[in-house]
Design a protein around this nucleic acid. Structure first.
Length: 350
DNA sequence: GCTTCCCGCCATACG
DNA sequence: CGTATGGCGGGAAGC
């Protein structure tokens, strides 16, 4: 019920003549995840109804499934019953990752080198393996996971494992695709200098993890920078800056960049060491939410130090493309960005 | 032009 | 059987 409301969707009137603009970006899964998290990451929230979420977020149910599936993969939410999920919070992530890491190691989820000469470990397609996450609690191997072998849920976890179980902090889309799905489909030409890759990030800024002081074992750090300044949205008519409720910081932010030239990695565990890439900087693509780097509303459109990803491109040779993974990962990336942003935000305001 | 990816149909699992 | 879930292709936004 309460399917679509035909409002608060991607359509919106920004012109006097009543013309409506449709923006895919504003309807992206990543953004949706962000909203979802903002909506439920509050006090008093313990259960989440799918219908409730759908109506609150103004999207159809199908989309909520995607969000929830991914969040569940890292422990942020847990399925309680039909139409019902429980909020576990960001604090559940470290534990979930620990489990994933162990499983991954056990399953040889190591990916060695995503650089030139596509070696990338022989695809260890152990999909048949019932790698249940045993979310810490009732590990009473429930048969309920019949369908979850190839789901977004599993795919997400495997993707995470790739990072947790390797010594690299960056993995190309191709490598991931090959490792997770097993290659075979390298679609269109990769002639261009497009080279999507993913990198782990840590909890944005958790210099001091208050309460629970155990989430510094292996904080993942992830980020993407791809082809170009990804979702840069100040090209044509960036319209206004939203015309509604609270805040939506990310709309004005063109892009971020970060220097990784120093070896100073605050929360760096044994499993993450510098990989081959030693470029001096990274381009942080999409609209990273504010507070990610102490940046507020800076809509500074300085796109100067973008040059760095040129070196990256040279480091990581272009390979093939996998449409399927491409899309999926794209979602993951945005979703994760949102999550980390959320975490960072909370951690910071301590 | 090619790539990314949102929409939503519809196959499937569940109750 | 109806309902809940989510894979997946097409087509369009984005670049």
């Amino acid at each position: 019920m309460s399917s679509s409301s035909s409002s608060a969707f991607g359509f919106r009137e920004a012109e006097p003549d009543g013309k409506q603009f449709y923006s895919r970006k504003e309807k992206s899964l990543g953004l949706l995840c962000s909203k979802f998290l903002k909506l439920y990451n509050r006090d008093g929230v313990e259960s989440i109804g799918l219908d409730d979420a759908a109506s609150r977020l103004g999207v159809e149910r199908r989309r909520i499934y995607d969000v929830v599936n991914i969040l569940e993969s890292i422990g942020v939410v847990a399925r309680q019953a039909k139409n019902l999920y429980s909020w576990q919070g960001f604090d559940a992530i470290p534990e979930a990752l620990e489990v994933l890491k162990e499983e991954g190691l056990r399953e040889n989820f190591n990916i060695n080198g995503c650089t030139n000469s596509g070696n990338v470990l022989n695809d260890n397609e152990n999909e048949g393996s019932t790698c249940t996450v045993t979310d810490g609690q009732d590990s009473s191997s429930s048969k309920i996971e019949s369908k979850r072998e190839k789901s977004l849920w599993l795919l997400t976890q495997n993707f995470v494992k790739l990072f947790l179980c390797s010594d690299v902090d960056m993995i190309t889309l191709d490598s991931a695709a090959m490792a997770l799905l097993g290659d075979s489909n390298n679609s269109t030409a990769m002639r261009k200098s497009r080279k999507p890759a993913f990198r782990w990030l840590g909890w944005k800024g958790n210099p001091c993890n208050r309460s629970a002081g155990f989430l510094d074992l292996n904080e993942p750090k992830k980020r993407v920078f791809g082809t170009d300044i990804t979702n840069l949205r100040l090209k044509k008519n960036k319209v206004d800056s939203l015309t509604e409720k609270k805040s939506n910081p990310k709309l004005n932010v063109p892009k971020y960049f970060k220097h990784c030239n120093e070896e100073s990695n605050p929360d760096e565990s044994r499993l993450e060491q510098h990989s081959k890439h030693k470029s001096k900087g990274f381009v942080y693509g999409p609209f990273t939410p504010a507070s990610i780097s102490g940046i507020h509303d800076s809509r500074s459109k300085n796109t100067k130090q973008v040059l760095d990803f040129a070196s990256l491109a040279s480091t990581f040779r272009p390979k093939y493309h996998n449409e399927a993974v491409n899309g999926l990962f794209g979602h993951y990336v945005e979703a994760w960005k949102s999550w980390y942003a959320e975490v960072g935000d909370k951690e910071q305001k301590t």
